[in-house]
């Protein structure tokens, strides 16, 4: 069975990364921004796993890394959502442009 070449994975992860970045910058909704961050993280996960498979097939560091990232991303998401809920309570909105108290 023919293997899937490495650059397929890299292309997918790069696309995911830039979609995530674009979403982070463009979208106004805080939840969507959080989702964009998840996209960025997962694109990195794909990179780790794919490159581990191609470079060191009999080792597992890349897999562990991606597992850690998944776990941390879950924790981060819960903290972020908690923050967003508090922001909503304070501002009655989750528009990122409205949340601009921290300025000069």
């Amino acid at each position: 069975m023919q293997e899937i070449p490495l650059y397929y994975f890299l292309t997918v992860s790069t696309l995911m990364f830039f979609i995530g970045v674009a979403g982070f910058i463009i979208r106004r909704n805080l939840i969507t921004i959080l989702m964009s961050i998840e996209l960025i993280l997962n694109s990195v996960n794909i990179n780790f796993v794919a490159i581990n498979r191609y470079l060191f097939p009999d080792q597992l560091q890349g897999h562990f890394f991606s597992l850690f990232i998944v776990a941390i991303a879950a924790a981060e998401a819960s903290v972020a959502i908690a923050l967003i809920i508090n922001i909503y309570r304070k501002f009655n909105s989750i528009e990122v442009t409205e949340v601009n108290e921290m300025k000069y």
């Binding site: 982070f24 910058i25 463009i26 442009t97 601009n100 108290e101 300025k103």
Partner: peptide, 17 residues
């Protein structure tokens, strides 16, 4: 130059990237 610190998160992100 203090206007640069606008409080707009996405602006910071864009500059950072």
């Amino acid at each position: 130059i203090k206007g640069l610190q606008s409080g707009q998160l996405q602006q910071y992100g864009a500059v950072f990237i």
